[in-house]
Design a binder for these strands. Structure first.
Length: 531
DNA sequence: ACTCGCGTTGGGTTG
DNA sequence: GCAACCCAACGCGAG
């Protein structure tokens, strides 16, 4: 019996390494590759015009690549649960395939669609291809709980063996016994949307540095893989956050949208490593893909992973609520040129280096402004081309010393950190041209420049560029004490904790945290189930 | 139950 | 220029 198949693209916007697409093509009479413009997304999250453009370009490229194998992409408008019953009937669908997506909204959505499919006698096939491993297998292997350290994570993966190899790329041969039917009305009904249709202002677009799509992803991949020495020597902490052109691959937006398969990336790197000395996780290129996997695992295994409240592994911190400071940070007006340059790059270009993310995330939270990491998470979710739910939540928890990372006394300096790799402040001058006439001596701290120098530079601090909104040396010291107090409350010290000084009595014995079971207790139940 | 080594990427001073 | 050390000190996970 031959099927009429829908393959539903969500992430995974590619033909290569797409097992669910291959499954749709098997014993198939009519194939309908679709993407659904789901109104849930713009209603529930801000998305920058830059990321909308990336998505549109990815969809266009997908349509072009499907055309090459005698198919097309149908972009459908509407809620998935409303769209599918109509499509099932209209196209006499018997099979629906898609890639497994582990985010909370996606899981609920997919469960709802699966139910609808069953009601319409439509077979559903789901395949793992967004991640290197099936995430629930990782969790099961670790006795039902996600590892909280990278070392432990690696141990768990070692027992699972290497990731699966990517599957074959579909060709015209795969389509020879089936067809995709589209009519002359295709473009008005199923065409890839424009920015205007999505209510986006194209005048707000930044430079097109990272065009969307699988074709661009694969050519970028090959471009970097040609640099075999660089690939083998890659150590993330040694790459520069403030180089004038990216010091890393910037493949992250492509991996996020699935224009590039993580497994294809993994095995391509493995080919380069073959027989050569190379760096290792956590700092190597393989290591970077494992970090992604690490946070995906945490996102699946830890309830309320994108929040502090109800997140049992997250330190509960009494973050402040200074709206002016949050806005200044978000708009690059903190008065710290290094921070403001990074936020400007983020807003205009949609990508910043990982260490630049560290600097601004630390500054917003435990370092200087004492604002909740959830606020930073929202801004990154809007502006980053590579914004990915688990990675964004996980990294914000990391940098704010809320989860995974606990050495809160290690604070990034908004002045010193950037100097290590850009003494002259060329990066600052690129993104904050108002400061371009300041000499290296003052470029990271322009408020210290004498008035006469400010005048000569054509930039008066406090008028043309803001004064620092906080004094880093004072704020960071105070915030370390606040973190100390938050940790003391967490471990349940019986001693009095003085909130202002953060002094706690170290002799206080540990006891259960008030208001809920500890993480260990929560996970114990799972463990006994497995054993 | 308890200790202990260590953790992808800090800053600052000293030698 | 660079390595060693201090700062004041966290939790995870192995043993």
């Amino acid at each position: 019996m031959k099927h009429n198949s829908i393959h539903w693209f969500r992430k995974g916007l590619r033909l290569h390494d797409n097992p669910a697409l291959l499954a749709a093509m098997k014993d198939c009479a009519e194939l309908y590759p679709i993407f659904i413009l789901d109104p849930w997304f713009p209603r529930n999250m801000k998305v920058s015009v830059n990321r909308w453009r990336f998505l549109i370009e990815a969809l266009k490229d997908l349509d072009e690549n499907l055309k090459k194998i005698n198919s097309r992409l149908f972009v459908v408008r509407g809620k998935p649960t409303e769209v599918f019953p109509l499509l099932f009937k209209k196209w006499k669908v018997t099979r629906l395939t898609f890639e497994v997506d582990t985010e909370p909204y996606s899981r609920q959505r997919d469960a709802d669609v699966e139910k609808l499919a069953a009601e319409h006698n439509v077979q559903v096939i789901q395949k793992v291809s967004n991640t290197l491993y099936a995430i629930d297998r990782i969790i099961a292997e670790n006795n039902g709980k996600p590892p909280l350290t990278y070392v432990r994570f690696q141990t768990v993966l070692a027992s699972l063996g290497p990731p699966k190899r990517p599957v074959q790329v579909p060709t015209q041969e795969n389509m020879k016994d089936c067809c995709t039917l589209w009519k002359s009305s295709y473009n008005e009904k199923y065409g890839v949307p424009t920015l205007e249709e999505l209510g986006q202002d194209s005048l707000k677009l930044g430079p097109r540095l990272y065009p969307g799509g699988e074709s661009e992803a694969l050519s970028r991949l090959e471009l970097h893989m040609k640099r075999t020495t660089w690939v083998c020597n890659f150590k993330k902490p040694e790459t520069e956050p403030n180089s004038l052109t990216p010091s890393t691959t910037v493949l992250s937006p492509y991996v996020k949208f699935g224009c590039l398969s993580a497994r294809t990336f993994w095995w391509r790197i493995a080919e380069i490593y073959q027989g050569k000395k190379h760096s290792d996780p956590p700092v190597s290129l393989h290591g970077q893909l494992l970090w992604r996997e690490f946070f995906y695992t945490a996102g699946v295994g830890i309830p309320n992973f994108n929040k502090m409240e109800g997140n049992t592994v997250c330190v509960q911190v009494d973050w402040g609520n200074n709206k002016e400071h949050l806005q200044a940070w978000s708009e690059g007006r903190t008065g710290y040129p290094f921070i403001d340059a990074i936020m400007t790059q983020l807003r205009t270009e949609g990508w910043i280096h990982h260490l630049a993310r560290h600097a601004v995330a630390c500054f917003l939270t435990r370092g200087d402004l004492w604002i909740s990491w959830e606020e930073g998470q929202k801004v990154f979710e809007e502006l980053l081309l590579d914004a990915d739910w688990s990675l964004n939540a996980g990294n914000w928890q990391w940098l704010s010393a809320s989860t995974f990372f606990h050495q809160f006394f290690r604070v990034y300096s908004p002045v010193a950190f950037g100097k290590k790799t850009d003494k002259n402040g060329d990066y600052i001058k690129k993104y904050l041209p108002i400061l371009k006439k300041f000499p290296a001596e003052y470029i990271y701290e322009p408020w210290k420049a004498p008035r006469s120098l400010q005048e000569r530079a054509g930039c008066i601090i406090g008028k043309d560029y803001p004064k620092p909104i906080v004094e880093h040396d004072v704020a960071s010291k105070q915030n370390i004490q606040r973190m100390k107090a938050a940790y003391a409350r967490r471990s349940g010290s019986t001693a009095e904790v003085d909130k202002d000084s953060g002094q706690s009595n170290k002799n206080g014995a540990k006891r259960k945290v008030a208001g809920g079971p500890s993480v260990a207790e929560l996970f114990k139940k799972n463990k006994s189930k497995k054993d």
